[in-house]
Amino acid sequence: MIAVLSRFQNDAHVRVIDVEPDYTMDQVAAACAAPAVDRQVRHPAPGKPLRVRPTTKDDSAPAYARAMTVREAGFRHYECIDVFVE
């Protein structure tokens, strides 16, 4: 398992989420949304897929490809990511 620091769109909390190296970015987004959506925040656009990108100061990083794996992205423990809707 790899621990990532997840920041969900429209939520002020950062959560530590465990992900597997073989998870796709869709699976990472789902794992990050599970403890947040309908508990502390609403899905920003129900019906639209959640995306994952590296955390940056201005939220300008491009999203990872949805089929890319954690291993392919080169995540390390405590990688900072944003989960959002484009």
Rank of each mutant, 00 (worst) to 15 (best):
E20I: 07
H13I: 11
E20L: 13
A33L: 14
S6I: 02
Q27R: 05
L50N: 09
F84K: 04
V52M: 07
P35R: 07
R42M: 15
D11E: 02
D26S: 14
A33K: 01
V19E: 06
V4I: 15
F8Q: 00
D11M: 07
Q40T: 14
R51T: 13
V83C: 06
N10P: 00
F8H: 07
N10Q: 07
V70P: 04
R39E: 15
P49R: 12
Y78R: 12
T24E: 09
G47I: 07
V83T: 11
Q9D: 06
A33Y: 02
K48H: 13
A36R: 05
A31L: 07
A29D: 09
I17T: 07
A31D: 06
A61G: 02
D18Q: 11
K57H: 05
D26W: 03
T55F: 14
P46N: 00
D82P: 01
D26V: 12
T56D: 08
A73I: 10
R7K: 00
P35M: 07
I2F: 10
G47H: 01
M1D: 04
E20D: 14
E72H: 04
V41R: 03
A67K: 10
D58V: 06
V16G: 04
A36M: 13
N10F: 13
S60L: 12
S60H: 09
E79C: 09
Y64M: 15
A12K: 08
I2A: 03
H43V: 14
R66I: 12
G47C: 14
D26G: 01
R71C: 10
C32I: 07
T24R: 02
Y64N: 10
P44A: 11
D22H: 02
R53S: 13
D26Y: 00
L5M: 09
A12G: 10
P62T: 11
I81L: 15
R42T: 13
T56L: 10
A63N: 09
Y64H: 10
P35S: 07
P54I: 15
K57C: 06
H77G: 14
A33I: 09
V4S: 01
R76L: 15
A29F: 10
A34T: 13
T69L: 12
P21V: 04
M25T: 00
P44Q: 11
I17K: 03
R42K: 12
I2D: 01
I81F: 07
M1Q: 00
R51V: 14
V52T: 10
A36D: 10
M68H: 00
G47V: 08
V70E: 06
D26K: 01
I81P: 01
V70Y: 08
H77D: 15
P62V: 15
D22K: 05
S60Y: 01
A12H: 02
A30I: 08
P35N: 02
D38K: 07
V19M: 04
P54D: 15
L5C: 01
P62N: 09
A45K: 12
I17S: 00
